[in-house]
Structure formats: C-alpha cells, structure tokens
Write a protein that binds this DNA or RNA. Structure first.
Length: 785
DNA sequence: GCGGCGCTACTACCT
DNA sequence: ACAGGTAGTAGCGCCGCG
C-alpha cells in the first residue's frame, strides 16, 4: 500500500472491466501526472415519500424485487431536509450511474413516492461531495500502485483505503500548453497553421504542406511529448477544438490528445473536455469582464497591459497571406504571437480560475465555461450537502416577474461637490438581516410566531434557525473581510497577494450573485419570494435613507438601488450614516465625491469629475460598445471640456471641427466601425437590423459565425434604410462611408446629449446642409436602375 | 406615395 | 439563462392626406 498525495485537476468516470470507475487526475509534488482510480463508488438518488410508513412500504417493495433491481447496492430510509422541511426519503445507491438513471426513472412512479432528488447530480460531482474533496486542492489517498502507463507519467493507482483532503492549497507548478489554429476562414475551413507553446518555453508550428494531416498528427505528438496538465486557447471551445475535431474526423485521423488515449469531447456548459488535462478557453473568462468591449485576444491583452501593439491579422487576410510567400512569414509570426499571448493571458487568469474552482467545486476546465448561475448552483450544492439538505432537482417552471430596485429621476444639470453614498453589499446584508432564504420562507398556513414579515408583500421568514442562504452569505462575507485584511497587511505586490486578490474576487462574485440566483428560474433553489422580498427590503432601505436625508435637509440629486447622491456636507452625511446604522442596522458609506457632476434628464446616465481630476462616464454613449469610436471620442472630449473647463463654447468648437473632418473623411476608418452582438440565430430576428444584415453578408461569403459574435459594420452611402446601408467593416473602406450619417446620427447626438444640458441649442450644432442633401439625392438617382 | 405617430424589437448599459 | 430598471435607435404598421 502506498500513500499518494496529489493536486486534483480533473475528474472523470468510465467503465473498466465491467464496473464503474471514478478517475481522479492530478499532479504530485514533483509535478508528475497521477491517476487515482476508485471502483468503490455507488451513485445514488433519493425517493421522497409522503410519510414514514409509505417509505417503508416502498422500501419493502424494492427490496423484494432484487432481481428486477439487481444493480442496487444499498437502500436506506433517511430523514432529510428539503427547502428546510423534514422529509422521509429512501436513499438508493447503485452500481453505476446508468442503472441509477434507469431505476430513478421507474421508481419515481411508485405510488408511495412523491418526489425525487439528486438524480440529476453528476456522478463525479456526487463523488467529490461524498468524499469531501475539491478540485484545485491537495488530496491524500491510500492506494496501491496499479501500473506504469505510457500516458500517465507519475503512475496509475487504485484506491484501496481512505481518500481525504490534505488541507494544503498551494498551487503546484503546472505544465501549461497554449495553442492557436489558423484556418482558411471563409468557405471550406481548412487548417493552415497550428501554433503551440508550453510554459517550459517550447514553441512549435505545424503547417499544411501537402495536406492537413501532418498538422494534426504533428500536433497530437507535440501534446504527448510535452504532456501538459492544462491546455489553454482563445475561443478554443467554440472554434479551434471543433475545427480540429471536424478535420480529424474528415481525414479519418485520431485526435487522441488526452491522457487516456481518447479524443476531446463536448461536455457540460458547452465546453470541450480532455481527459486528464484541464482544457480552458480564456475567451470565456474575458467574456465575463466589462472591458474591453470587443474581446479579441489582442484587445484583451492590450487592455490588461500584458502586451502592447500586438500584431493583428484579419481573419479574411489569412487565405491570401498564406498563398503569398512574402506574407507567409507575417502569418507565422502572428500565429506564434497568438500562442505566446494566450500563454501570458493564462498567467493573468489562472489564479482566479483556480480560486473559483476550489470555492465552487467545479473542475478547473468547467469554471470559465459555467455561467454565474451555474457557479452559484455548484457552490450551493456543496454547502447544502454539508447542511444535510437534499439537492433539489432542476425543473422547468414558468417565469413570473417581480419589482426590483428603486431608481430616482436625477436633477438634470451641472452640480458641484456631490458625495456618493452607497450601501455595502446591500442585498446580501438584507438577506442576512432578515434570514431571507429558500428554507426559511413560511407558507400561508404555517404558524410561526417568531418571523420577519416583509412590508408590502406579506411574505414571512422565520427568525431561526438560520437559513441556508444566511449561513452561506455569512461565510462568504466573513471570508471576504478576512481575505481583505490579509491583503492589506501585505504591503508589496507578491504572488501571495495576487492569489488572495483572486480569492477575494471569486468570493465576491459568488456572494453578489446569490440574490439574482434566487430569482432565476433555472436555479435549483429558485424561490421567487426570496428575490422579491430582498428587492422590496432594498426599496424600503433606500426610501428610509432618502427620508432621513430630507429630514437632515441634505440635498439629493440622484439615487439608484443602493446608492444616493447628496451635497457633500460632512456633518450631515455623518449624521445620516449614524441614523441608518441605528435604525436599519445597515452600513451606508461615502464612496466618492464628485467635484462636479453632470446629469442628463435620463436615469443611469451621468458624468462626473472626481477630486483627483479624473473624469468618469456612466451609461453614456461613450461607455457603450455599440457606438462608433468617433462618436464616443467626441462625447468623452465634450464631457471633459465641460466638466474641467466649464466651457460649452470650446466644446462646441471642437464638435464643429470634428464634424468637418468627418465630411472631409479625414478620420481613420476604424473610427467608423460599429460593433453589435449577434444575440440570436439569424433566422430568429423579426426585424431587419444593420448588424444582422452585415452578418448575413458574411455568411454568404462563407464565414462561420457563432452566437455571441460581435459583428463589426460601417454605414455606407448606399441609399435606402440603414440596414441596407450597413456593410461588414472588412468589406468597405473610408471612401464608402456615409459621412452624413456619422455626423447626424452618431457624433452630433452623442455630443448634444451633454451640451443641451448646458443650454446649447440644437441649431448651434452643424446640421445637414442643402448641398449635402442634394448630393445624396444625386447618389440616390444614380443608383436607380 | 409619404410623413408622422406609436408601438415593438433590439442591444447594452446600471446597480 | 443570476435579477429588474432603463435609455436609446431603428424598423414597421397604420393613418391620414382630396
């Protein structure tokens, strides 16, 4: 017998010699690959019964049909909780997940059975729950050496005894491989070039000489030679892997890049799974971040300061460049750069992904692919298991909307010295304060003297014991404070500090998402009343705060959900904070002070000048991804002139100059591009829209588009509706640009939004001239058949 | 045939 | 597919207009 200590990277299950086997893949302290196989696991499900006697009846029935249910390993009558209520249930554990699925299907039809639970929790997830293990943590296992396998450098072991967390979390040195695929993007989608790079500094490229086969076989060999623990790409789950898999299939080649002699395969959350290696698509992490708006690899690394002036090649140039021997070198450099940037980006994202993995229990490769809702789901599953709560089935249900946060109409105009006060973690703290949780909600008929009643809604939540959300949020908020304190105690930037910051970010993400999760119909613990009550408590909180501010004669300019904007009167603000603390048991704190702030008539749109001289724009065109750069730049500049110099005149002058340069087309082409997300399949659109028409044109040219792709288009001088004027930006030049559109529908509205607040009238801004109108009429006539 | 009007679709933002 | 609240542009159908 030998003890194996390893860092868990991937979990899988398989059938071996007729029985189900859980496979734990990891690395040991020397960085060698380890595989631990466990054949002792029995996946389970629960049958919920109406009463104990009914449960006994069902149990007898099942136990007397041993032949029919011969793959049941054990049955047990248990008392559990479901949504905080005691239930009697039968725990049925089976030989493997297939028999579990089959039996759960038939047994839930028994008349004694009123419900079912945990049948839709994946076997690997059940395994980790039962053994108390988390991915991206160290585990010790009592095993015996099974065999030396070609694909498992550190050896393959069979679990013979205990398996448990070792308590250590320090990340070992992981072997990482990045890769990027270049392909002929339009039409046939043939492989042109694959570039790969390892964290040990090995770099390689595979090119199509005669055929693509050499690329695939070369790549597969490279993966095995370097044996990475983690494979990183950019859009690799949506583009690179599917393309490699498709071409390998077409060419009848095996893409056996995993550690078990198998091929990549689609898994949950739409990601590609590679047994024994963590396959991570860094685009999926970038996707969750607000900036940059257009998330190309080059934009993302530049935004993060990882690289500057990254080499850029448009997808549509690749074919041509490859055919031209002169340009081939540039293409090779571009592919090599991609692999390098992806590797660097993985360093920037890895700490966060690891922390999220060990917090939620999701394997590392699933973390980036899982949406926020599923991350919370995974986290709650772990906490519920520890609390002895059954994990409810995910069920389809109807959607009922409810009222959300309160938004005040701003006082339009320019204001000086305005303080922004906001509640720290308002929703989580309200849920804590009122024990708002799926398992504390009382039903209409419940008699419970000691309960919180939600004003205006009448829902009641019992005061004790603490609900699941209460416990969880308490843990998360307490952990976050502790992590923050630790970060503050570390003065200099260090690896330890960065890990803590990543951990804090992960904890914060989950804590902030719990409220939204509660109101999400896809949630296992969906209870609309929980979300609805929290939002109602939030409205009351902000209402009370507003009233107290009025009592103190503290002038209000704006407020949204958990924040209020007031005159910066230190004494009154302090009084307000104290009153709120006392009356509501909530913390409202001054977040920042605007030396000057400008509100439009609209909610959720304003611009402020901070005391350090920096300018912030909120909600305005300039911070939106779907306006042209030129319009955004002009609006930002106007805001700066207005806030810093209070000179609408100067701003006006600036706008006039820019509009002139637009008409002269003395503006860089990229400034005209408008980006919009393709949010649904083309055929699902009910109206014609510019970005949809541009997307259709790209498809006609043979491009593959994915849901969620950003479509870049420009408005050309083609006559007609806007959607007829739109052209994919790669297919037009500055000559095609409709200057009048950009002046009249982009730059001027964005600038006027700010200037009108300062009393500038519309006719002080440039307007379409007769001459310009005439020219478009001429063009229109010329285009007539 | 066309402009004005009101409604809807669509996207992306704020907290 | 974490929530609701909100702004803004453009498309589209309808109406009136001798």
């Amino acid at each position: 017998m030998s003890k194996v200590l390893f860092y868990l990277l991937d979990v899988g299950h398989a059938f071996a010699e007729g029985s189900m086997e859980i496979r734990l893949w990891g690395v040991d302290s020397e960085g060698k690959t380890v595989l631990v196989r466990d054949r002792s696991f029995s996946p389970w499900f629960y049958l919920i019964c109406r009463s104990k006697s009914e449960a006994e009846k069902a149990l007898n029935l099942i136990n007397s049909s041993k032949t029919r249910f011969h793959k049941i390993r054990s049955t047990e009558l248990v008392t559990k909780k479901l949504f905080g209520r005691e239930v009697t249930a039968l725990k049925i554990a089976c030989q493997d997940h297939e028999s579990a699925a089959e039996y759960s299907e038939s047994l839930q039809k028994l008349p004694q059975v009123s419900g079912i639970a945990e049948n839709d929790v994946r076997p690997t997830e059940q395994y980790l729950l039962q053994r108390g293990l988390l991915p991206c943590t160290w585990i010790e296992a009592e095993t015996e050496f099974a065999k030396e396998e070609r694909l498992v450098a550190g050896g393959s072991f069979r679990l013979t005894g205990d398996i448990r967390p070792s308590g250590d979390r320090a990340r070992p040195a992981l072997k990482i491989m990045s890769f990027a695929v270049l392909y002929s993007a339009s039409g046939r989608n043939r492989l042109i070039l694959v570039s790969a790079r390892t964290s040990e500094g090995v770099s390689v490229q595979f090119e199509a000489e005669e055929d693509e086969g050499s690329i695939i076989s070369g790549f597969v060999d490279f993966v095995h030679d370097n044996d990475p623990d983690m494979v990183v790409g950019y859009q690799s789950n949506s583009v690179d892997w599917p393309l490699l898999m498709r071409r390998a299939r077409d060419l009848r080649l095996r893409l056996d890049v995993d550690r078990a002699g198998g091929e990549p395969h689609p898994s949950i959350h739409g990601h590609i799974s590679i047994a024994g290696r963590a396959n991570v698509d860094l685009f999926e992490i970038a996707r969750d971040q607000a900036e940059p708006k257009v998330k190309t690899l080059e934009n993302v690394v530049e935004h993060l300061g990882i690289a500057r002036h990254a080499l850029r090649v448009e997808d549509c140039e690749i074919d041509q460049a490859w055919k031209d021997p002169e340009k081939r070198k540039r293409l090779r450099d571009y592919a090599a750069q991609k692999a390098e940037l992806i590797l660097k980006l993985s360093e920037a994202f890895l700490d966060y992904a690891i922390q999220m993995s060990s917090l939620t229990g999701l394997p590392l490769d699933q973390v980036p692919a899982a949406t926020a809702g599923f991350k919370v789901d995974a986290y709650l599953i772990r906490e519920a298991y520890k609390l002895g709560e059954l994990i409810p089935q995910r069920v389809e249900r109807p959607y009922y909307p409810y009222r959300g946060g309160l938004v005040l109409a701003p006082k339009p105009g320019l204001h000086e010295n305005i303080a922004v006060l906001d509640f720290t973690s308002m929703y989580p703290n309200l849920m804590l304060l009122y024990n708002v949780s799926p398992d504390t909600l009382l039903q209409a008929g419940d008699r419970e003297a000691d309960a919180y009643e939600i004003p205006g809604l009448g829902y009641r939540f019992r005061k004790s014991p603490e609900g699941m959300y209460t416990i969880v949020l308490n843990n998360l908020l307490t952990a976050r404070s502790a992590i923050k304190a630790k970060i503050d105690s570390l003065r200099r930037d260090s690896a330890e500090k960065r890990v803590l910051e990543a951990q804090e970010q992960a904890v914060k993400t989950i804590a902030n998402a719990v409220y939204g999760y509660a109101g999400w119909i896809g949630a296992r613990w969906y209870v609309r009343e929980v979300a609805e009550s929290t939002a109602a408590l939030g409205r009351n909180t902000i209402e009370t705060t507003l009233n107290e501010a009025r009592n103190l004669q503290l002038e209000l300019t704006y407020g949204d959900t958990d924040s209020i904007f007031v005159e910066n009167d230190a004494k009154k603000v302090e009084k307000l904070e104290a009153t709120i603390r006392e009356r509501l048991k909530m913390e409202i704190k001054m977040d920042k002070v605007y030396a000057r702030v400008l509100f439009t008539e609209a909610k959720k749109r304003y611009a402020g000048l901070l005391e350090d001289g920096s300018v912030e724009l909120v909600g305005l065109e300039a911070v939106r991804g779907d306006w042209s750069e030129i319009a955004k730049k002009v609006q930002e500049k106007v805001v700066e002139i207005v806030l810093r110099e209070k000179s609408p005149k100067k701003a006006l002058e600036y706008v006039r100059n820019i509009v002139d340069s637009i008409h002269r087309k003395d503006v860089e082409y990229s400034q005209f591009v408008i980006w919009k997300t393709l949010a649904k399949p083309l055929e699902a659109y009910e109206v014609r829209a510019p970005h949809v028409e541009a997307a259709r044109e790209l498809i006609r040219d043979g491009w593959r588009l994915t849901l969620g792709d950003k479509i870049g288009y420009v408005i050309t001088s083609t006559p007609g509706k806007l959607y007829q004027k739109a052209k994919p930006y790669i297919k037009a030049t500055v000559k095609d640009i409709d200057a009048e559109y950009y002046a009249a529908n982009q730059v001027i509205p964005a600038a006027f939004r700010i200037l009108e607040i300062l009393g500038v009238s519309e006719d002080q801004l440039p307007k379409p001239t007769a001459q310009r109108r005439d020219r478009s009429v001429v063009e229109f006539m010329e285009h007539k058949p």
